[in-house]
Design a binder for these strands. Structure first.
Lengths: 254, 254
DNA sequence: AAATGATTCTTGGTCCAACAAATAGGAACC
DNA sequence: GGTTCCTATTTGTTGGACCAAGAATCATTT
């Protein structure tokens, strides 16, 4: 919370620079964020009412509302009727949602994302092998077991992702975990496609178990091999997925 | 372009689900995005005027404007006076800007980000050593040389980042590169802090050169060693940075 | 006819007033 | 004390108004 305030002030958030001619809305966005900082508001605190903000910053209520819409889109505030705008911690969701926009689902992307996962998940192997406790690895077993209890492609994909997320968590790096989670939508999409073609929860559970065993044996070669094979395995079912004309289905939904 | 349209429709963009009670603004955001899809608009195309959109979707102009502010915050449209709202490809910038919000600059974060970089940049070493051409590596030299021609902490940090960005580019993974670039603001911030304490472009150039040499020699051990040492080196100057009461400076700026 | 300058019209930017809907907080009641 | 109802406040939405900037049109001049 506090660190966040430090960040907002110490970092130049605008990459672009247009010195003059900022709109009243942009100005208000900044002023409201300054207000949050100077008043040391925390998550859950309410901002002044729209009218008060307008009077405070010499702006009309519509302008204030447009600024609040921006803040809301950023996940910084959540505005409830009668209460007003309250500080929110949904900006991670906002980032995730927005990030999903810029990833298209093409065959190349499938390959690309799996390649990313291989780099990351193999790359953290050394750290896990060196630092993970027995409890950590047992926790992986627990997470892995859940895939046997769910049914449906969506549930299986969610459990599958949860396992890999737990794996990345063991790297002990928050930045890496945040970035990995950004891809959640795309990754689970890949998983769904794969599992739709061939719903094999038991196989997935088995393979994950072998990966955990390799970690418990502190065998980094086996870990890398099993993980790479696992990720490549998931790709073999997505090839034909993009042969169909996905475009028509899109347009009909509009 | 086309893939983007496919994505928007094929992926569940809202993680949360509130079935009923969508506000008119949210509805408009969706309707305008549908409009973009159904009309096959591309980057640079203009949307109808605010008044037309209001008439088209039975909404007031203020409501339309609030929806456009959201789209603008998402980097989907860019609205220019007199021209109207035109489709934009700035959503990468929007993501980057938004992503910077959620990273605080604490000592732990400095360490964390450097740890992330170590995982990523070391992890791609194998791929680079196996697949990079002589031209690729020479290009690294070119990028590296630029740091000698700039002066000022900001310029040096930008060149430093450019080198590491070029390194990550050689991994040939777009997803990884995108994620790495998301951290650009934080990484260059770390670099600036380090260089402000001890502005040593020549040392940086020298170290980068050694890393390139290791790659040219296809020596993965040397690469990992030099890179890890390089990243750790940058950390030793940031320790005292957070001893000062940064908070007060923040408040005084409001 | 072409270039140029003036005028008009369109459009986004901002603000205000009004009403509807939701609800927090208090009043009244049991 | 607890429940119910009422009211005042606040957000949600709309329409209208005005301004400034720029595009489009037209008139003037060469």
């Amino acid at each position: 919370m506090i660190d966040n305030a430090i960040l907002l002030a110490s970092m130049a958030v605008d990459a672009g620079q247009e010195p003059a001619k900022v709109s009243a809305v942009d100005r208000l966005v900044e002023q409201i964020r300054d207000l949050v900082r100077t008043r040391d508001l925390i998550i859950g605190d309410a901002l002044p009412t729209e009218r008060d903000l307008g009077e405070l910053f010499q702006a009309g209520r519509n302008t204030v509302r447009e600024a609040l819409q921006v803040l809301k889109a950023y996940g910084i505030v959540e505005v409830r009727p009668k209460i007003g705008a309250v500080l929110s911690d949904r900006h991670e969701d906002a980032v995730r949602k927005l990030f999903a926009f810029q990833n298209d689902i093409s065959p190349a992307s499938f390959l690309d994302v799996q390649g990313y996962r291989r780099i990351v998940e193999v790359g953290i192997g050394d750290h896990i092998i060196l630092h993970a406790t027995a409890d950590d690895l047992n926790h992986l077993d627990t997470v892995n077991a859940r895939i046997l209890d769910v049914d449906g492609v969506d549930g299986a994909a969610a459990c599958d992702f949860a396992f890999h997320e737990a794996l990345v968590t063991l790297a002990g790096n928050r930045t890496l975990l945040t970035n990995y989670r950004l891809l959640q939508a795309v990754i689970t999409h890949i998983m769904r496609v794969g599992k739709a073609k061939r719903p094999v929860q038991i196989d997935t559970h088995q393979t994950h178990g072998e990966i955990i065993s390799a970690l418990k044996a502190r065998d980094r070669v086996a870990y890398s091999y099993l993980l790479s094979r696992h990720l490549e395995y998931g790709l073999q079912f997505v090839g034909s997925e993009n042969a169909r004309p996905a475009r028509t289905a899109v347009i009909s939904s509009g």
